[in-house]
Simulated scan of single mutants.
Amino acid sequence: MKPKRKIKIYYGLLPLACLYRLVVSIRNWMFDRGILHSQSFPIPVICVGNISVGGTGKTPHTEYLIRLLRKDYQVAVLSRGYKRKSEGFVLATPETTAEAIGDEPYQMAHKFPDIYVAVDRNRCHGISQLTDGHTAPGVRVIVLDDAFQHRYVKPGLTILLIDYNRPIHLDRMLPAGRLREPESGKKRADIIIVSKCPAQLSEAEQEALRNAIAPLPCQQLYFTTLAYGRLQPLFSAEPEKRLEEIRKDEHILLVTGIASPAAIIDKLSDYTQFITPSTFPDHHDFDATDMKLIMEAFKKLPEGKRFIVTTEKDAARLITHPLLDEALKPYIYVLPVEVAFLNEEEHLFNQNIIEYVRKNSRNSSFFKS
Rank of each mutant, 00 (worst) to 15 (best):
A147N: 01
R178E: 12
K58V: 08
P94Q: 09
A118P: 09
L68F: 02
L174M: 15
G177N: 01
V153W: 01
Y106P: 02
H150A: 09
L69W: 04
I101Y: 02
H150C: 06
R121S: 15
V141R: 00
A147V: 10
V75Q: 04
V75S: 00
H169G: 10
V119R: 02
L170I: 14
N122H: 14
G81S: 09
R140M: 11
R67D: 15
I159E: 02
T93Y: 09
T135P: 03
A92D: 02
A109F: 07
I168C: 09
Y116A: 05
V141F: 00
H125Q: 14
T158V: 07
L91T: 12
D103G: 10
S86H: 08
N165Q: 15
E104L: 01
S86K: 07
V139T: 10
D103W: 06
A92G: 06
A136L: 09
A176Y: 01
A118F: 08
G177P: 03
I159H: 01
Q107C: 11
Q107G: 10
Q107D: 09
D146N: 09
D171T: 08
R178G: 11
G81H: 02
D114H: 11
G126K: 03
H150N: 11
E99I: 13
K71E: 13
Q74K: 15
R180K: 11
P155H: 12
F112D: 05
L157Y: 06
V90W: 00
C124P: 05
L174R: 08
N122K: 14
I101D: 03
T62P: 03
R121M: 11
N165W: 10
E87C: 14
A147E: 00
V75W: 02
R180A: 03
V139N: 00
K83W: 07
V75H: 01
L91A: 11
H125L: 14
E183S: 15
R84K: 06
T62R: 02
M108A: 02
E95Q: 12
H134M: 13
H134P: 08
G138N: 08
F89M: 07
L144E: 02
L160D: 05
L174P: 09
T62N: 01
P60T: 12
P175V: 11
Y106D: 08
H150F: 06
G138W: 03
Y106W: 10
K83M: 10
C124Y: 07
R80C: 09
L91W: 05
T93K: 14
G138E: 03
D146L: 07
D146P: 07
V141T: 07
R151H: 11
V153S: 00
Q74I: 15
A92K: 00
I162W: 01
M173G: 04
R67W: 05
L130R: 04
T93D: 06
V119I: 13
H125R: 14
R123A: 03
G138V: 12
R70Y: 08
V90C: 06
L130E: 04
L65Q: 05
R80G: 07
K154C: 13
E99W: 13
F148M: 05
V141P: 01
R121V: 15
F148E: 02
E99H: 12
I159G: 00
